[in-house]
Simulated scan of single mutants.
Amino acid sequence: MRSVTLRYHDAGVSAVCEALCRGMGLGPDLSARLSYAASLHDIGKIVVPDAIINKPGPLDEAEWAVMRQHPVMGFNILRDSEDITLKVAANAVLYHHECWDGSGYPHGLAGEAIPLEARIVGICDVYHALREARPYRAALQHDHVMGMILEGDGTGRLHAGKFDPEVLAVFRASSDAVREAFDALG
């Protein structure tokens, strides 16, 4: 179950990323690199125990501490590559959980200190994660997820300030393409 679930999520984030890259007007080479980077964004989860990955309820603090290491572990897997695409992927992997407002992890970076590739992959990861079913909740519909990303989730955990405002604006404008990319995965 673990490998199928992760592959589906990785492919989904990649597809959503490709739609967002088109909306941003990025060239085909950079778009392809970012789409590939998105497919590797959670590669560090291969070192996270199955009991944490598949837990049917909320993670406790110790489990979250382990989970928060997956970006670093993924970066460590990719960091020594000389391939330009894998270098882009390494940055996206390491920083995709950083937030524009500085509330993310693993380094608490904020604003433009977060590489653009990570800002793009990060919003696509959040979208796809909310759209897919998880062991602890049902899948959410597109309009609901867009509302959560653009206006917040009501708990303060998710709000627009977590995302690059320019990337967020394109994400909003690309809403239909993002939905179509997700839906095409079946």
Rank of each mutant, 00 (worst) to 15 (best):
Y136R: 06
C99G: 06
L140N: 09
D50V: 03
L116Q: 04
H128T: 06
A184S: 13
Y8H: 08
L20M: 08
L59R: 02
G104Q: 08
C99K: 09
R79M: 14
Y105W: 11
C21F: 14
M24C: 10
V178I: 13
H9P: 01
T155A: 12
P58W: 03
C17Q: 04
A51L: 01
D42P: 00
H142C: 14
I52N: 01
D125G: 00
D101E: 00
I77Q: 12
A90G: 10
L130D: 05
G27I: 00
C124R: 02
H128R: 00
D10E: 07
G25F: 09
Y95Q: 09
A37N: 04
A118F: 02
C99Q: 14
D183N: 11
G156T: 03
P56R: 01
G12Q: 00
Y8V: 15
E18K: 05
L150Q: 12
L34H: 06
D60A: 05
G12A: 08
L86F: 14
A110E: 15
Y95K: 06
P28W: 11
P115D: 09
Y127T: 07
R7L: 07
R22V: 12
V4M: 02
A113H: 11
E98S: 06
A62M: 07
V145S: 06
H142E: 13
I46W: 12
M1C: 10
H41D: 08
H159V: 04
A37M: 05
C17L: 13
V121L: 02
G152D: 00
G104T: 08
L34A: 11
V178N: 04
A11V: 12
V66E: 15
S35M: 15
A90P: 05
E132Y: 09
M146K: 12
D10G: 07
L34M: 14
L78V: 06
N76K: 02
D176Y: 10
A38M: 07
L158N: 08
A19H: 03
L20F: 07
R179K: 08
D80Q: 09
